[in-house]
Simulated scan of single mutants.
Amino acid sequence: MQAHIHGSGFGTAASVQAFAARNLQLLSAIETTLGVLKADTAYVRIMAGEVEDCLAKLKSEQSDCPLDPSGRVCDLLHKCLDSASRMYADNKARKASAEKDSRLTPEDGIVDAFDAFLEGLRDLHDRHVDLLDWVETHDALLVPSSGKAYGSVDELFLAMGVKV
């Protein structure tokens, strides 16, 4: 055994201890990362479920009142979408780093944990899109028609205050 350690480049017991400590630090970092990703994945899945439940409740109530006349809720939903997109991009880059890290193996589960988290973020994003679309459509359908007919798209845009 001593010859094997010496032949591997480990000349002293201190070198062996340093190598072991480095491996323990890596294992600790892997465990911490897996724990955080698992907790974050569970959290985004819960949030996606809450958004889905909210949408289902709104659909079942069939309200004939505008839900967001000031646009505040839709503005907040747009911010949620932006946040989810940023988180997705950041974590996709982290996953790519993990894939390139020669110290990690598939058995460590880091890449799989990132995949699960990214899937959760996609689902959360999609649920927010569904809710935003539904609220905007619901409120738009409640706006009374002007009864005017326009001869061209340009006339319609001008009536809406959009410069062509």
Rank of each mutant, 00 (worst) to 15 (best):
K148V: 08
A20M: 13
S60E: 09
Y150A: 02
D130N: 15
G7V: 03
A96E: 04
S102G: 13
S97H: 06
A96G: 04
L142D: 06
L124F: 07
E119D: 15
D133A: 15
L118V: 08
L34N: 06
H125G: 07
K100F: 05
R122K: 15
L67G: 01
D115K: 04
D90S: 01
D133G: 13
E107G: 11
K38E: 11
K59V: 07
L34G: 01
G11A: 14
S70A: 12
G9L: 07
P66A: 09
A84C: 09
K38D: 12
E61W: 08
A98C: 05
V135E: 02
S60V: 02
V111F: 01
H125I: 00
A89S: 14
R94K: 12
T137M: 10
H78G: 04
E119Q: 14
M160R: 11
A116R: 05
R94T: 00
L132H: 13
S97I: 01
S152F: 10
A149E: 11
I110P: 01
M160G: 08
A14D: 15
S85C: 08
D126Q: 15
L121W: 00
R45T: 08
V111M: 01
A140Y: 09
I5P: 03
C65S: 04
D112F: 04
K57V: 07
A14Y: 06
D133M: 14
A56C: 07
R86Y: 12
A93Y: 01
W134S: 06
L77H: 01
S8T: 07
I30P: 06
